[in-house]
Design a protein around this nucleic acid. Structure first.
Lengths: 124, 124
DNA sequence: CAGAATCCTTAACGATACTG
DNA sequence: CAGTATCGTTAAGGATTCTG
């Protein structure tokens, strides 16, 4: 089940690393509010670079989580939207984010304890 | 809420990248079966290097998700175990893994469609 | 047994400049 | 507007060697 040559495991692992990358979750959550154009996404997520937004959207599109609709006008218009599959991913992501928000306090406290113990050990 | 200078957001983002790293989820799931010694973990996760296992466990310990118990014998014995906080994280992780397993098929199909369309575009 | 330290390669990412 | 292409930096991770 955790054999890395197993294709199912590889897919799960790839998905987890997507979730863990810097932008995927932000993009999915933004698209959760509805369809967005490329530069609308950039404005909603100011810290993302053009390059990273492009790559993130390409990956999401390739995995079937986001649809890309091109309107060949001048200037061109491209709309991104969550697919049904993409929408279904929101729930487990939300579970994780909620857990994190509920437990920020405990985590920070644990980190403070750990770092204090480290300092003490180094000082000694 | 998605301001990267907000400490809560930073914690959430750090947690997500932990989930997304190569080993954290595997280690948490292995420890979910019960307490393990260092080399027991290595045997259960053969692909992890000693260095990465050490780093992963340190991070988990610092975040308060895993406890580390040293028995100063010769040879030394170190046991790792999920804390209550760590156990509570299993549920949202499971939600994500379950989603992934349920949708591997759809994802692979989407990737195949995407790649086929790419090839066609390149060939043209 | 459980690690710390070091070296090295690769991949991620940001910044910038250019294009249909 | 919505990208692509290229470059340079940083960080992740593996392999190896050494130690209490």
């Amino acid at each position: 089940m955790r054999d890395p040559t197993n294709p199912v495991c590889r897919t799960i692992s790839t998905l987890l690393s997507r979730i863990g990358d810097k932008w995927t979750v932000l993009v999915v959550q933004t698209l959760g509010q509805g369809s967005h154009r490329f530069n609308e996404l950039r404005r909603e997520i100011p810290s993302v670079s053009q390059r990273m937004l492009t790559l993130t959207l390409r990956n999401l599109e390739r995995d079937g989580l986001v649809s890309r609709t091109v309107t060949p006008s001048i200037p061109p218009r491209v709309d991104y939207e969550l697919t049904e599959l993409g929408k279904s991913l929101q729930k487990p992501i939300c579970g994780l984010v909620t857990w994190a928000m509920d437990n920020v306090g405990s985590i920070h406290a644990a980190q403070a304890r750990f770092d204090a113990a480290q300092d003490k050990a180094v000082a000694a």
